[in-house]
Every structure is written in C-alpha cells, then in structure tokens.
Write a protein that binds this DNA or RNA. Structure first.
Length: 585
RNA sequence: GCCCUCGUAGCUUAAUGGAUAGAGCAACUGCUUGCGGAGCAGUAGGUUGUGCGUUCGAAUCGCACCGAGGGUACCA
C-alpha cells in the first residue's frame, strides 16, 4: 500500500539531502505511534548518524530534527498524496487526509468481506501435526491447549496464504491399550459405550490403571500383551472395535471444538516401518545394537561432532520393543513421501524439545534434505493453581467434558438472563459458543511459551479481557444493523471531522492484514487474540460515544458502514482463533 | 555439571535499535445508567530480574550473573 506516495516522497527527500551534501542515505518509512491521524514517519536519525560516522561533528538527535525541518521546508505543499507534513523529534511525519483514508479502509473491508486481511496464495504447503491423543484414555484440559493452539495456528496459516494439512497422530497401541482391554475382558465384557464415549473409555482405563498396581493383575495384563504381540485374532478384533469407540469419542470432542483433520496417522501403522528402519540404521552403522544387554541407540553427539548437545537417542528397547523414536522417524518420512511439504510442524509440549531436536538431527544425518523443514512448535503446559501439574495418575486432571459441561451451564445462565425469550435449542447453542469461546480465549491469550494456570473462575469469567466480551461486541454491531433494516448503504462519504473513537476503531481495522502475517510467521495466535480484544473495546467505545440509528441521514449512512466493517473484522479475528461469533447472545 | 525456555505494574500483555515504556484486567474514588446490562471520568501502581558491554540512542543486540520452570540412554 502507498508505494507510489512513498517513492515520490523518497525522491524529494534525496534531492534535499543532496543539497546537504549527503549522497548516500537509507530512507525508511515506519509507523507513526498512532495519535488520531494516519500517516507515515521517516526517521532522520540514521541519516544524522551517518554524518556523525563520516567525522562530522553533530549531535545526532539535534541534527535529525534539523534535517526533518529542512525537508519539510523543501517539500512545501508538494506532498503527492499526503495532506500535510510535520517535523517532530527527528522524524518527518507525513499525514493522509483523514476522511479519504477512513473511507478507503471501510470500503476495502466491506468490499472484501470475510477475505479482508487474507494474504494471497503463497504456493506453500505446511503440515501441522497436533492433538495426538492416546486412544482408550481421557481427554483433559492439558490436551485441550494443544488442540486449541494447533487449530488456531492452522486457521491463521491458511488465512496467511499457506495451504495447510491438518494431521493427527493417534497413540492406538501400547501398554495403556492392553491394560484397557484386559479390564474390559475381565470386568466389562459385552458392555458398549454410552453417549459420552471418551468418558466411558476413560472410566475403564482409570479402573485398569488402579488394578494394575496388584502384581497378580499385572501378570495377567502382561500375558494379554503377549497375545496381542502374537496378533491373536480375538484380541486384534477387540482392539479394532474399542479403538473405533475411542475415535468416535474424539470425533465428538473435535466437533465441539470445531476442529477436523485431513490426515490421521496411527502409531500402529508406523511400528513395522519403524522396526525395518532401525534394522537399516544398524546395518548402516549409524545405530549401535547392544541387544540383548542394552538397547539400540544412536550416539548423535559422536556423529555430529558435538558435545552434550544431541546426546543419545534410543531407537529400540533391549527387548526389541519400540519407543516413540522408533515410530516418529518413519512417520516423518511418510509425511514427505505423501505430500510435497514446505514445512512440517509438530505441536508438542515444550518438555519434548530435546527429543524432537534429536529426531530432526537423526533425519538430517540420514540425508533427508527436507530435515530443515521440520519445526517444533513448543508450548507450555496447563497447570492447576498452586503450580500443580495435571496428571492422570495423581487424579489431578480436569476432564474435557466436565469442563465443557460446567462452562456451558454457566454461560447458559447468562443467556437465560439476557434473552429469556429465545428457544431452548438456540439458547444451548449460544451457551456452548460462549463457553467454548471463553476456554479457547483463555488458552490463546497467553504466549505459547508461558504456563497457563487453569483456574475455573478465571476461565469462566465472562467479563474483562475474555471471549464473551468480544462476542458481545459482535452481537451489538449486528443488533444495530438489524434495527437499521434494509441493507447497509452501498456507499457513503466520511466527514473530515471524525470522532476520536471512530478513528481509533478504523485504525485497529487497518492492522489486521499485518497482524495475520506476523501471527503466522511466529505461530502466535496471541497476536490475533490481542487485536480482537482491542477491536471489541474500540467498538464499545464507539458505541458509547456515537449514535448511529438516531443520527442524521449522512452520518447514519457512513456510521452504518463503519459498524458493518467493524463487525466483519471482529468476526474474522474470532474465526482465526476458532471462536464462534454468534449473532445474538 | 550441561542444554532449552521464560523474567516489563498484583495478573495478561504492547513497543521487533529510535518519539514521554502503551494498554486491558484486578484495586481504589466518584459519576452515569438513553441504538441490548453495563459504561464513563479519575487515582494509584515501573530504577523493563541484576551488572557490564556494543551504539549517537537498548525493554529490544552481546556477555556474565540471579530467579522460575523443564530436559538430560531403553518414560511418554
């Protein structure tokens, strides 16, 4: 934007600098700290500093101001698209005509609608692997951060012009699954899951985990594991059936969260390829095989010539059974065989940083030229107040469905109070949108690398900086537009004198495209979370200071367009966070 | 021991080497309650963890230290 205006001014500045015997200078444009008027700033500090370096005795800030004033005088009224200029604090500030700029922004938003802020297609494909739950187990709040973060990052990347493949990798084998099957066969034979499948699955698992403490039971579980390893058809059949139940349960959860995946990988599917890969590693002399007295491992530091950096990666246990590494290596390879990826992202908690570094390094050593396209998107855990870690074993988990039920109930009470006349189903749908929005916003409005302390009251606080506040602004905008009847005017001129609240609102709308790009580059939904809140606040300020429906026709017309544009940008920003923007609440 | 991440107001954050470190939440004091229940005005809160360095200029870059959390061969 504004390239023409910029290059015009740049040439004028250069011409002036020549008169000052400055022939080489970097002219850069940057944002003016916004104070009610739109424009761009040219800092003269670099130019003055350049003079200082050539030996000229100047005081940089003073000289910068002098130059700025000189340029302003030199430009006179010949501003090519800018309305006026000012020399302040060593900056040359160039301002746009407010009415024209405001109208340009609002027109652009309404013209592009839901695509406002979208980056053109980049022709780059990114796979994001996230969620990765274990089947036969619970889905708790710790898992929630992963899904919410991964889902939002996908939405942001898509909006920033990338083609995104959402991948999920399910832990469908291992001791936890065998424990589950053992308990099912012994105590729950013939039972089928109830409505809430994940909850049911987890009850059986939690029980199994308890019973497993008893050595006698443990022996039975081990025996069952052996049958599983023999691929006893009866057990395989049970495994398939129960895994399916678990998948259906996850599907319910993903539906609620408004998430879906393009490609699902199973741990069971990469176990054999993993075993073959390890054999190859041993033959190639990359991995050392100490079986049966020790495991198969790769001494990464030795190969890379580093010390204490990559450590040692165990790729197969001494008894020949597989570990995560056994399966993550072939999975990475499979992804690149299936897709032409420009980047492969792993949304996995920060505690596995070294492990992923090892996996990436191993793939590099194996000669895969795409190894540098692997990226670990690390996030911190969700703790409970008092810095208590959520762990199934200690019983300190907050289960997903309990959380959503509670949250929905609270939201429901609020909807009931505000809008008692709505139908039951509508009320429930709104309550759920509000409840899930609140949960998502709590998770996304914290930086990835910071611990989220999960607090029931804070997560369900519908006031303050939280999703409901933003959703509410969206609803209010919709309410005005609805009452205005008809359609939004197709065109309206903006007056020279705008209210401060109008200007601030428009300013925030202009920031969306750049913030999307930044959020995508940094994989930080927080950037959008902050913007969406600021938009909502700015809209509320506007709402409180500017009449729309009761204003005179010309004012009403442009303000209606402003309301519609604001509603659009709020909706878009919420959508990028995976939060629904209801039309009533 | 070594490695990684993080330190800005009580909390969540902004400023991406440049303008007086800017907001919101929470707190306190008033006021208002009119397109939908909440809003508005104000107050207070900061030697940007500490020190040194690079620079005309550092919250931002470098080094050291302090603090918190995590990781460090057959857990996931």
């Amino acid at each position: 934007m504004f390239e023409e205006e910029k290059s015009f001014i740049e040439s004028k500045i250069r011409a002036y600098l020549q008169t000052q015997e400055i022939n080489e200078a970097t002219i850069e444009f940057r944002q003016i700290p916004f104070s009610g008027e739109w424009g761009m700033a040219v800092p003269l500090f670099p130019v003055a500093a350049g003079e200082a370096r050539t030996g000229k005795r100047v005081i940089v800030p003073k000289r910068a101001q002098e130059l700025a004033e000189g340029i302003k005088a030199h430009l006179r009224d010949d501003l090519g698209g800018f309305s006026h200029a000012e020399a302040v604090n060593g900056y040359l500030n160039l301002y746009f005509d407010t009415a024209a700029y405001a109208q340009r922004v609002v027109d652009t938003v309404l013209d592009q609608g839901a695509d406002y802020g979208r980056t053109p297609d980049r022709d780059q494909t990114v796979m994001v692997e996230y969620s990765q739950p274990n089947t036969h187990k619970a889905f708790h709040v710790g898992h929630l951060r992963n899904v919410i973060l991964g889902g939002s990052v996908c939405r942001i990347l898509e909006f920033a012009g990338y083609e995104v493949i959402r991948a999920n990798y399910l832990g469908d084998i291992g001791l936890h699954v065998v424990k589950w099957m053992w308990n099912y066969l012994k105590h729950h034979a013939g039972e089928t899951p109830d409505e809430d499948r994940t909850h049911w699955m987890n009850q059986i698992y939690a029980e199994a985990d308890q019973l497993f403490q008893d050595p006698e039971n443990e022996a039975e579980v081990r025996a069952l594991y052996a049958r599983w390893n023999q691929r006893d058809p009866e057990i395989v059949e049970l495994w398939k059936q129960t895994r399916q139940w678990s998948l259906e349960g996850f599907e319910q959860i993903y539906d609620q969260l408004d998430e879906s995946f393009d490609r699902i990988y199973f741990e069971s599917g990469v176990e054999d390829p993993g075993a073959r890969l390890v054999e190859g590693l041993i033959e190639a002399g990359i991995a050392q095989d100490e079986r049966p007295d020790g495991p198969v491992f790769i001494d990464l530091d030795q190969i890379a010539g580093t010390e204490d950096e990559y450590r040692v990666l165990v790729v197969l246990r001494s008894d020949g059974s597989s570990l995560y590494a056994t399966k993550d290596l072939p999975l990475a390879i499979q992804k690149f065989e299936e897709y032409d990826l420009d980047q492969s992202i792993y949304v996995i908690d920060v505690r596995q940083s070294l492990y992923l570094k090892q996996i990436f390094k191993t793939l590099e050593i194996l000669g895969y030229e795409w190894a540098d396209k692997l990226y670990h998107l690390a996030y911190e855990l969700v703790n409970l107040p008092g810095n208590v870690t959520m762990a199934s074993r200690e019983g300190t988990v907050v289960l997903f469905d309990d959380l959503v039920k509670e949250a929905t109930q609270r939201a429901r009470a609020i909807v009931q109070e505000k809008n008692p006349e709505l139908g039951e189903e509508t009320k429930h749908a709104i309550a759920e949108a509000v409840a899930l929005g609140a949960l998502k916003y709590t998770m996304l409005s914290r930086d990835n690398t910071k611990v989220v302390t999960f607090d029931w009251d804070a997560a369900l606080d519908f006031n303050g900086q939280a999703a409901p506040y933003i959703q509410y602004a969206h609803v209010r905008a919709g309410s005005i537009l609805r009452k205005a009847g008809q359609e939004c005017p197709s065109d309206a001129a903006f007056p020279e004198q705008l209210e401060k609240t109008e200007v601030d609102l428009i300013e925030l709308m202009t920031r969306l495209p750049a913030e999307v790009v930044r959020a995508a580059a940094e994989y930080r939904p927080l950037v959008i979370a902050n913007l969406s809140f600021e938009l909502a606040r700015a809209f509320n300020d506007f709402y409180n200071t500017c009449q729309v429906l009761n204003a005179e026709p010309a004012v009403r017309a442009y303000r209606l367009r402003l309301v519609a544009a604001a509603q659009q940008v709020i909706a878009t920003s919420l959508d990028l966070l995976g939060i629904k923007a209801p039309s009533v609440m």
